[in-house]
Design a protein around this nucleic acid. Structure first.
Length: 584
DNA sequence: TGCGGCTATTG
DNA sequence: CACAATAGCCGCAG
C-alpha cells in the first residue's frame, strides 16, 4: 500500500492535484492521474478504500469521481477526504438539468447529439450487429460515444484493469470540464470556484447521508402522540382511531352525512352543506372562516393531525429513525432550477414542533446558525447595486430600505420580496416605481432575468450555473393567448427567482464547505443544511469554538464568494442541546 | 398502475 | 399565498 503512495508521490502528486478513483467491491480500486492510466497491484488490494485513506493521509489530492456514488461509498467506509472533483456535479453546473450519468456527460462534453446516444435498452438485432465491432475492453466506441455497458452497466467494475481505465476516463473528463470552465470564466469569473464548491457540497451530502440527524425517539413519539394519540397496536386499532378523528369533524354535520375528509371535492361539498362556498379548501382560506361554523375549526384540527398521522407520525419514525438514534435521508447537493440542497425523509420539511426531539447526543451540543435576510443581501451582491449594498450594512436591512422608500418596514419587506418572486399585483405593486428609482441596478438585474425567462432563454447564476429555460418555454400552439401570457409570466418569475435563490444557494454552500473543512479539527459534524441554516453536532467542550468558527467562516465565505466587500452578511449563532432551543 | 391536482410542511 | 423543495392521498385515464 505504501507502494502506491510512493509511486503517486514520485509522479509528482501533491495536495490538491487531481487523482481519479473508481471503486468496486471485491475487485479493487482504480486510480489514475490526468493523462496517464495508473495501475499497480490493484487486484490484490484488500479493502480498496484503505488505499484511498492512505493516499489521502499522505498526499491529500483532489479526488476525481464520476459521481457521489463513490464519495458515498467512501463516507460509508469511514474514509473522509478533504476535497474532490465530482464530475456529475460539474456537469449540472455546466449544462444544467439534473441527469449527469457518464454517457450524458461524455456526449455533452464532446458535442455529440444526445438523441443518438447508445442506450442500455433491451438487446435487439441492431444492437447485436453493433456489438460485433465493439471491443469490450474499450469504453469509447468507434462513433465517439461512451459504450452503453460501460456507462450504464457495470462493465468498468469487472476487472482491476477496467477499473483503472474507468478512473483514467474520469480524470480525462475532469480536465476537459476544467477547460470548459476556463472558457466560460471569461463571462462568468466565479464558475471555477463554483465547480469546486459544488464538489465539496457533494462530499458534505455524502457525509450527512451517512451521519443522519440525531433525534431522541422517545421525545419524538411523545410529540407525535400529542397530535394523534398513542401508537396503535394493530391495523384495526389504527383504523378505529382514524374513524374517531373523522367523527370529531362529522359530528358537526347532520347525522348520517357521509363525506370523505381526504377528498378536497367532498370537503367543498361538506362546507357548502353548512353554507360556506369556497374556491378551494386550503388552510389559509379556512382560517378566515373559523367563526362561520364550528366544523371549520374541527376540520383545521383534523388536517393537522392527519398530516402527522400520514407523513410525520409513527410510520415516518419507524422508516427513517434507525435504532442508533439518527434520522436518515438521502441528501442531494444541487437540485431544482436554483441548485439548492435537498433531502428526503422529511429532513427539510419536518413540522417545527418536531424540532424539540432533535437532541444532541450525550457529551455533545448543536451549534445552530442561520443567515439573516440572505436573499436581498445576495441580490445586492450579484447585481452590484450600490444603494442596496449600503442597506446591507444594517443588521436589519429592511429598516434602511423602508426609510429610503418612505414606507413602513413591513411594506418595504413585502415589496422587496415581491420583486424577487416576481409579484406584480397587490399592495406592493404601487411601490414598484419607487423601488426602481431607489435601487435601479438591482431592479434592472431582476427585470433582465424576467425577460430572459419569458423568452425561454437560458440563464446563468452569479456562480455560473446554467438555468435551463428551454424545456418548458417554447410556444405551445394549443394554448390560447391568455394561457400563453400566464405561462410566459410564470417563466419570468421562475427566471427572476432562480438567479437570486441560486446565488444564495451558492453562497450557502461556500459557507457550509468552509465550516466542514475548518471544523474537522474540532470534531464538528454538519448534520443538517436548510437553505440558510446550518446545524452542527460537536463535542460539548468544542461548542463555543465551533460557534466562533461558524461566524468567522461566514466572513471568509462571503469574501471568497464575492470579493466585493461592500455587501454585509449576518448570521445568528447559538450553542444549544436541542434544535428547538434556538431563538425564533 | 401512473400521473396530475390538491394539500401541508419547510426555507 | 409570489419563488423553491418533498411527500401523501384522491380521482381519473390507460
Amino acid at each position: 500500500m505504501g507502494v502506491i503512495v510512493d509511486e503517486l508521490g514520485e509522479a509528482g502528486v501533491g495536495s490538491g492535484d487531481l487523482v481519479a478513483v473508481a471503486l468496486a467491491d471485491g475487485v479493487g480500486v482504480g486510480l489514475a492521474l490526468p493523462g496517464t492510466e495508473w495501475s499497480g497491484p490493484l487486484g490484490e488490494v484488500d479493502g480498496p478504500v484503505s488505499v484511498v485513506a492512505d493516499v489521502e493521509a499522505a498526499l491529500a489530492p483532489r479526488w476525481v469521481v464520476w459521481s457521489s456514488a463513490t464519495t458515498l461509498a467512501l463516507a460509508q467506509a469511514g474514509v473522509r477526504v478533504a476535497t474532490c472533483w465530482d464530475v456529475a456535479a460539474v456537469q449540472r453546473l455546466l449544462f444544467g438539468g439534473w441527469r449527469a450519468d457518464p454517457a450524458r456527460v461524455w456526449a455533452q462534453l464532446h458535442d455529440l447529439p444526445l438523441t443518438t446516444m447508445p442506450s442500455t435498452g433491451p438487446v435487439d438485432l441492431f444492437s447485436l450487429a453493433e456489438a460485433a465491432d465493439v471491443d469490450p475492453e474499450q469504453p469509447i466506441r468507434p462513433d465517439g460515444y461512451l459504450a452503453a455497458d460501460w456507462a450504464g452497466g457495470e462493465a468498468w467494475a469487472a476487472t482491476p484493469a477496467r477499473l483503472a481505465r474507468w478512473a483514467a476516463l474520469a480524470a480525462r473528463v475532469a480536465t476537459e470540464q476544467q477547460a470548459r470552465l476556463a472558457a466560460l470564466s471569461v463571462e462568468h469569473p466565479r464558475v471555477g470556484m463554483t465547480a469546486r464548491v459544488e464538489s465539496a457540497a457533494e462530499l458534505l451530502c455524502a457525509e450527512m447521508t451517512v451521519a443522519g440527524l440525531p433525534v431522541d425517539r422517545a421525545d419524538a413519539e411523545v410529540i407525535v402522540a400529542g397530535f394523534v394519540g398513542r401508537r396503535p397496536r394493530s391495523d384495526a386499532e389504527a383504523a378505529e382511531l382514524r374513524a374517531r378523528r373523522d367523527a370529531e369533524v362529522l359530528r358537526h354535520l347532520p347525522a348520517g352525512s357521509h363525506y370523505d375528509l381526504r377528498s378536497p371535492g367532498q370537503v367543498r361539498s361538506l362546507l357548502r352543506r353548512v353554507g360556506i362556498e369556497v374556491p378551494d379548501t386550503r388552510a389559509w382560506r379556512l382560517e378566515a372562516l373559523r367563526d362561520q361554523h364550528p366544523v371549520v375549526e374541527a376540520l383545521l384540527v383534523w388536517r393537522k393531525a392527519e398530516r402527522v398521522a400520514t407523513t410525520y407520525g409513527y410510520g415516518w419514525l419507524d422508516q427513517h429513525l434507525v435504532p442508533d438514534g439518527r434520522l436518515r435521508g438521502k441528501w442531494s447537493g444541487s437540485d431544482g432550477a436554483a441548485g439548492r440542497m435537498t433531502a428526503s425523509a422529511g429532513l427539510h420539511n419536518m413540522p417545527s414542533d418536531m424540532r424539540a426531539a432533535v437532541l444532541a447526543e450525550p457529551g455533545h451540543v448543536f451549534v445552530r446558525a442561520d443567515l439573516g435576510q440572505i436573499e436581498p443581501r445576495v441580490l445586492a451582491a450579484v447585481s452590484g447595486d450600490r444603494a442596496l449594498a449600503q442597506a446591507t450594512h444594517d443588521d436589519d436591512m429592511y429598516a434602511p430600505v423602508a426609510r429610503q422608500l418612505g414606507v413602513d418596514r413591513a411594506t418595504a419587506k413585502v415589496a422587496v420580496l415581491g420583486t424577487m418572486y416576481g409579484q406584480t399585483t397587490g399592495h406592493s405593486a404601487h411601490i414598484l416605481p419607487r423601488l426602481r428609482a431607489t435601487y435601479p441596478v438591482a431592479m434592472a438585474y431582476l427585470e433582465e432575468a424576467d425577460r430572459s425567462g419569458q423568452l425561454g432563454q437560458d440563464l446563468r447564476t452569479y456562480g455560473g450555473r446554467l438555468v435551463r429555460m428551454g424545456a418548458t418555454a417554447t410556444g405551445d400552439a394549443s394554448l390560447d393567448e391568455q394561457a400563453a401570457r400566464s405561462r410566459a409570466a410564470a417563466q419570468g418569475r421562475y427566471g427572476r427567482n432562480a438567479l437570486v435563490q441560486g446565488a444564495a444557494a451558492e453562497l450557502f454552500k461556500v459557507w457550509a464547505a468552509t465550516v466542514r473543512t475548518r471544523g474537522a479539527e474540532l470534531d464538528a459534524e454538519i448534520v443538517l443544511c436548510l437553505h440558510d441554516e446550518l446545524l452542527v453536532h460537536v463535542p460539548e467542550a468544542n461548542g463555543q469554538a465551533t460557534a466562533d468558527l461558524v461566524a468567522t467562516s461566514l466572513h471568509e465565505a462571503a469574501h471568497r464568494w464575492s470579493p466585493t466587500p461592500s455587501v454585509r452578511f449576518v448570521a445568528d449563532v447559538s450553542v444549544i442541546p436541542r434544535w428547538s432551543d434556538a431563538k425564533a
